[in-house]
């Protein structure tokens, strides 16, 4: 098992390296001078030569490519992600400030989705009939709801009409814990609805498949109760594919925060990213993208390890 974990971590580190290389190359493979490209606002207006020179200087574009590559990699490893074009703030520090807020949101949404999705899917598969077909329809709608539309609808009803919860903003845990939590509720629900549907659907189809597994018949032939057979021989085995989907889903969730944070005016990592993209503040964009990718890879390592715990066949 330890060997399996170490192997997964090693693969993850290799993947991080490839991801970093891809991000580095992205800037250089795009046709045209990267500095000019970043300064043009998409409207063809040309930037002043001084501005171009400044960008070049900041991104180190005047140096040979290999030197740039080395500086980039060693910068990332030592936590130096450069300075913002706009605010000259240290990118790593800005990310450090914003990251926990986004993680809190993602964590809460994942918790909601897992706690609701798995029992819901299992229940639908086991009951069949109307429960099952309703579940199928509801989850189809759930996965089709864009977070920015659903989030706005939540605001419309729970903030504007019913005035139960604030429409958006942020309060730190230290200053106002009550408001901090209140402000988390709607964004977390907006994020969780699609994820819950995905988990419920996967659980449902996995359970349906496992109900027909040969070992279920074996368990029944031993005289075990229906409950025990379902829990230990159906649901337990259904978790493997569900765990995979959860791993992938957390990544999608990380991406969706980009929209949710805008809807709810939540100052997390993703709103930092969107502001930076809009202003074409490349060092910040790059820093956030690296952070999210590394985070996602780390999550997937954890998921693979859980998978290994659940399924003895994959840990060798």
């Amino acid at each position: 098992m330890l060997g399996y974990i170490l192997r997964r971590v090693a693969v993850g580190i290799g993947l991080v390296y490839l991801v970093l290389t891809l991000i580095f190359l992205a800037l250089h493979l795009v046709p045209g001078d990267p500095a000019l490209l970043l300064l043009s606002q998409g409207d063809g207006a040309s930037a002043t030569p001084e501005a171009v020179e400044r960008v070049r200087e900041q991104l180190g574009l005047n140096q040979p490519l290999l030197v740039q590559y080395w500086d980039f990699l060693s910068g990332v490893v030592t936590g130096d992600l450069g300075q913002s074009f706009r605010t000259s703030q240290d990118v790593a520090a800005a990310i450090g400030e914003r990251l926990p807020r986004t993680l809190e949101l993602v964590g809460l949404a994942t918790l909601i989705a897992v706690v609701l999705g798995i029992p819901w899917g299992a229940w639908a598969a086991r009951r069949g009939g109307l429960v099952d077909s309703t579940t199928t329809t509801l989850t189809s709608i759930g996965v089709a709801l864009p977070v920015f539309v659903f989030g706005s609808v939540l605001i419309l009803f729970f903030s504007l009409k019913l005035a139960w919860l604030p429409a958006g903003g942020f309060a730190s845990m230290g200053e106002d814990p009550g408001r901090h939590l209140q402000l988390l509720v709607l964004p977390a629900i907006a994020l969780a609805v699609g994820f819950t549907s995905v988990i419920a659907r996967m659980t449902r189809s996995a359970v349906q498949e496992m109900l027909h597994a040969d070992w279920v018949r074996t368990a029944r032939s031993l005289g075990l109760s229906r409950r025990r057979v379902f829990r230990r021989y159906v649901l337990r085995n259904s978790l493997n594919p569900v765990v995979t989907v959860i791993g992938l889903g957390v990544g999608t969730l990380l991406g969706s925060t980009v929209l949710v944070e805008r809807v709810f005016n939540y100052p997390g990592l993703s709103s930092l990213l969107v502001d930076a993209v809009t202003a074409r503040d490349y060092p910040v964009v790059q820093g956030v993208v690296i952070t999210i990718a590394v985070l996602f890879i780390a999550i997937n390592i954890v998921v693979d390890v859980i998978y290994g715990v659940l399924d003895p066949r994959v840990r060798r």
Partner: peptide
Amino acid sequence: VGVDVLLAFPPIILALLAVTLRGPG
């Protein structure tokens, strides 16, 4: 190399990177 690296990003994040570099459109 190819697929796993691309899948290490949530899709929207990679799209934002592309938009930063090439501008919207």
